[in-house]
């Protein structure tokens, strides 16, 4: 069992940019957490802090009750991390790169483990291929494979499905879900579909602040009565169009708003609607 406690976390870069403001939350295993937020919301900074790649300018992160700054080695021995952008050694084959990473992770029975992650990430055909010959999606799969090496207790994936085709995305969602049965999986994305079906907890973040922390159902519930259909688009005032659908009866607009305009037909919100509503609400406040 792993327990991560984040207390009043703040991060301001030397440039003066405030990336995180007063973040507090607890993460316990098993858990599959979706970290949602628009680009530049602070997700990657948060993940960098969780992986001890950055030191916070305020607050603390506790790993099993002890400050992370003193337990960096312990964290790293239990961590599998896929950063948003990363490089691979192009001159090595897929198998060699994973062998290299397994050696860095200090994995003893590495052959079995490499075979397992190759199987799980569907790289069997590419195991002997040089990394420079791989497509973007295949490179992403190698990145995911190295994170899975050693069956770590904490898996952090920053935008893991970028570059993957729809079939692969579904397969990886299921893989993350399977892994979350006995560990913590933290999945950062701005693609709602990726977290909709698998995450049991969602954390929405924007402008460095937590806007929402709860289950997907709770997020959907928060948008009830704020999502509607409009048959003819009015001047876009006080609402946000989330979809434009061409039908036989003309164009229908799916909208989210704090107060739906006159004539809008209230519909059941989806997770995407709820997320748009949440982000829009935050935008209105600012």
């Amino acid at each position: 069992m792993m327990n991560i406690s984040v207390q009043n976390l703040n991060m301001t870069y030397p440039t003066g940019k405030i990336a995180l403001r007063d973040i507090s939350l607890d993460i316990k295993s098993p858990n599959l957490i979706g970290l949602l937020g628009p680009n530049g919301a602070g997700k990657s900074t948060f993940m960098n802090l969780l992986t001890a790649g950055l030191l916070p300018t305020g607050g603390s992160i506790l790993l099993d009750g002890e400050p992370l700054v003193h337990k960096e080695k312990k964290l790293k021995s239990k961590l599998g991390y896929l950063p948003q952008s990363f490089g691979l050694y192009d001159e090595l084959t897929v198998w060699q790169f994973l062998d290299y990473m397994a050696a860095l992770k200090g994995i003893r029975d590495n052959k079995k483990d490499i075979e397992r992650v190759i199987q799980e990430t569907n790289l069997k055909d590419k195991r002997k291929a040089r990394i420079r010959t791989l497509s973007g999606g295949q490179r992403q799969r190698v990145g995911i494979a190295q994170a899975l090496l050693g069956n770590p207790e904490l898996l952090i994936f920053d935008e893991p499905t970028v570059g993957l085709d729809p079939e692969e995305r579904i397969s990886f969602r299921n893989l993350f879900s399977k892994n979350a049965q006995d560990k913590i999986v933290l999945l950062s994305t701005h693609i709602i579909e990726d977290v909709q079906s698998v995450c049991n907890r969602l954390i929405a973040i924007n402008h460095g602040k937590i806007l929402f922390d709860g289950t997907p159902e709770q997020l959907i519930l928060s948008a009830q009565g704020h999502v509607g259909l409009l048959e003819n688009q009015q001047e876009e005032q006080g609402f946000k169009v989330t979809a434009r659908v061409n039908t036989a009866n003309g164009v229908h607009y799916r909208i989210v708003a704090k107060q739906l305009p006159f004539g809008a037909q209230v519909v059941e919100p989806t997770l995407e609607d709820a997320y748009m509503y949440l982000i829009g609400k935050e935008g209105d406040k600012q």
Binding site: T51, A52, G53, K73, K76, S77, L79, Y81, L82, P83, S85, F86, G87, L88, Y89, D90, M101, L104, K105, G106, G143, Q146
Partner: peptide, 15 residues
């Protein structure tokens, strides 16, 4: 450049 990018992964290992 490649090394700097790979380091994002290798630096999160216990090595």
């Amino acid at each position: 450049r490649q090394e700097q990018e790979v380091r994002r992964i290798t630096e999160t290992t216990p090595m």
